[in-house]
Design a protein around this nucleic acid. Structure first.
Lengths: 224, 224
DNA sequence: ATAAAATCTTGACCCGAATCAAGTTTTGAA
DNA sequence: TTCAAAACTTGATTCGGGTCAAGATTTTAT
């Protein structure tokens, strides 16, 4: 990818969309393209951060692993989303690992480059604050649903959420394999499978692999 | 509290410690002192945010309540800490309620005032980013411990953490009543009580109301 | 000082979801 | 195109922590 393509990608991201070409060029000089095949590791928990990331293509799974080897997926990053911002401003190491679940292309925007921009552009500051705040909000929501909802309610909430985000709300696609979805929802794969079966039997959804047809949105929302 | 006292309080906070007197004055003009007795409500979930908060005295509990009335405490704010920043940058409403657990004095720094400062001072930007990022980190840690640790490990982790933060690590004070501590750790009060009893019986801690004496740090760290 | 309320503890019992196990289906690498 | 590995499902069983209940202790307001 040459400099002009890189600049184009950067200015296509919401966070940088108001920057002048000269600033984009500055940013592009502090940006590296990273190519990682499916299943590869972008960083591990404990790694020092050299910048933050923008996902161009593919998918990234953020998670933690317990000493006993149990895994918990904290987030799934989709193309067009950024991640790893928070670590930059704490001068600490990553609290999560980042692994690709598809062949992926990622931009690494180095600490120096983004700090330079932040010092000179109010828009980027606002959007950076908003990005980290949004992640914050998501984490609070996750804690709430883990703490106060049972397995069925968590799955229903999740299905309704991805349905709301989808262009075709009745027919949604799980964004990852069921092991990953289960982990995000704090469930074992066995439990996820059983809860899906119950919702199917109740006539609320139809499951075909990763495709879920929501046959009764209102019923799903009011289940139990 | 008069303007000069207010200014003094503001410049005493880390986030604003590098500001010039003229900027502090600007900030003070956009700041209101709020006095709330123990058990009072500062804001409810769903309220619109008019700014963010600095706790001067007392203690604030941040939490959520399920439709069934179950409560989950998300955070406990101590004097000198700020909260509610993230909501400002999302133009959304609070995802949590804020309630005092002691008679409290809180500064409300209005949106306009802080935005003005952010546009003009790089240091405050950095520290604001760091503050929200730190909250982020805490939330990820919380999700990790809820998801991957059992009740005993969560309590041990919590005790070791408050011990590490304490001037007298062998003798720590629970910062709130046990109902609140239990909720923070995603436990019922009954379970908290039982786990404490087990650790007592194992000779690792001694419990006297809110005072916990850690008699065997290494043992606590390696328990089970 | 005292009573009422809130907090905390302890016991008996229960239940939601995990674990373990054994298939079946899907996927993707050679 | 095949076949080994990964992903998923289903059943039997277990268990950590919740619920319910009752009593003890501490706190707070008067």
């Amino acid at each position: 990818m040459d400099k002009s393509q890189l600049a184009q990608k950067l200015s296509g991201f919401y966070m940088f969309s108001e920057l002048q070409p000269s600033q984009i060029e500055l940013l592009a000089n502090g940006t590296r393209l990273v190519d990682i095949p499916r299943g590869g590791t972008l960083f591990n928990r404990g790694d020092k951060a050299h910048g933050f990331y923008l996902l161009l293509e593919g998918q990234i799974k953020l998670g933690v692993i317990s000493p006993q080897g149990d895994e918990k997926v904290i987030g799934l990053i989709q193309p067009g989303e950024s991640f790893g911002e928070a670590v930059l401003f704490l001068e600490r190491s990553f609290p999560v690992y980042a692994q690709t679940t598809l062949d992926s292309k990622v931009l690494l925007i180095t600490r120096e480059a983004i700090f330079d921009i932040l010092d000179n552009d109010v828009t980027v500051v606002r959007r950076m604050l908003a990005a980290i705040s949004a992640r914050n909000r998501q984490l609070v929501n996750d804690i709430e649903s883990i703490s106060l909802q049972n397995s069925t309610q968590r799955l229903i909430g999740y299905l309704l959420q991805i349905s709301a985000d989808s262009p075709n709300p009745e027919r949604v696609q799980l964004p990852a394999n069921k092991l990953t979805i289960a982990s995000m929802l704090n469930l074992t794969p066995e439990t996820l499978s059983r809860v899906m079966l119950r919702l199917s039997n109740a006539g609320l959804i139809e499951v075909n692999g990763k495709e879920i047809v929501i046959t009764n949105v209102a019923g799903l929302r009011n289940f139990e």
